[in-house]
Simulated assay, not measured.
Amino acid sequence: MPASPTYQIDLSLAPATIEALVDGGYSFYTMFAVQMKNAAARPTIGFSTQNITANMPIVWKADVSAYTSFTPISSGSVVRIGYEVPINIGQTFVVTSGGIGQVKACGPVSKIAIANTTAGAFTSGFARALCGEEAAIPIYAVPLYGNQTNIAAPLPKVLLQFTTASLQPGTLIEKLAMEFQAGASYSPSLLVEAAANQTRALSYDINAGWNWGAYSWAEIIPVNADLAKVLIVQE
């Protein structure tokens, strides 16, 4: 089997920006996109850190795990993985009693299936860890009802943002905006389409914002955007 593609974004920050972000108590968040046609699906915080430095590489593999959870899908709640198993495109995670199960080789072309063989409902989705991080974190969540099959695909798109909002990895998000944590400060988000085994270079300035050379592989996402619509990509 060929090696899984690696994606990398090299984020650079000037000293004045680092000072402003650290003094303001900002955190850096990443969120990943998936392709799925289900209006109940929600993205989650995939990674967070307050370690703001001059060079911040964001590196991940295309690999994901399929998971089940008993966490209800509610904006602001943190999804806790109950069971997790590595899975590849074209495979199916067959869920059995208690949310555990096994991966079968048969599955949808270019996508991943999670098939519930029980009459109980779970929260489910994909999880991944950035390179250098130990624990896999949910990157989206969707209801998995009894005897239902969900089909989705991870996408090589990641959303980047600086904010003073206090959010744990795995937090379910709709709008990361003023109504979500009213007392917080937010930068505009940057949605980056990564390329396999290539590096996207970009920078952030506390006043000028994001700079990626205006290439077509990135776009600014406004603070008040509906991130469920941005990151849960319809077919």
Score class of each variant (00 low, 15 high):
128 R>F: 08
155 L>C: 10
149 T>P: 03
122 F>N: 00
232 I>W: 09
200 R>G: 01
188 P>V: 11
47 F>H: 14
13 L>Q: 03
88 N>P: 00
64 V>T: 13
208 A>W: 06
224 N>L: 05
20 A>S: 12
185 S>L: 13
42 R>P: 01
187 S>T: 15
234 Q>S: 13
39 A>V: 03
77 S>N: 12
22 V>G: 01
213 G>S: 11
73 I>D: 00
185 S>I: 04
197 N>I: 10
218 A>G: 15
181 Q>R: 09
127 A>R: 09
125 G>W: 05
81 I>K: 07
228 A>F: 09
158 V>T: 13
106 C>V: 11
199 T>Q: 09
165 A>H: 03
105 A>H: 04
105 A>P: 01
9 I>V: 15
167 L>K: 10
87 I>Q: 06
87 I>G: 07
186 Y>N: 00
76 G>C: 00
98 G>I: 00
176 L>M: 15
197 N>Y: 12
103 V>P: 01
140 Y>F: 15
34 V>R: 05
5 P>K: 09
28 F>Y: 11
179 E>H: 06
113 A>R: 03
150 N>Y: 02
208 A>H: 09
199 T>L: 11
117 T>N: 05
200 R>T: 15
223 V>D: 02
207 N>G: 02
46 G>Q: 06
18 I>S: 02
166 S>W: 04
179 E>C: 04
67 Y>S: 03
93 F>L: 14
95 V>F: 08
80 R>S: 11
192 V>E: 04
209 G>H: 06
156 P>R: 10
10 D>P: 00
188 P>D: 14
94 V>L: 14
140 Y>E: 05
56 M>W: 06
147 N>F: 15
29 Y>T: 04
108 P>Q: 06
201 A>S: 13
127 A>P: 03
112 I>K: 09
180 F>I: 01
40 A>F: 08
228 A>I: 07
104 K>V: 11
200 R>M: 14
97 S>L: 14
227 L>H: 09
234 Q>H: 07
63 D>S: 15
234 Q>P: 00
216 S>K: 06
70 F>P: 00
70 F>L: 11
152 A>C: 12
216 S>Q: 06
230 V>E: 15
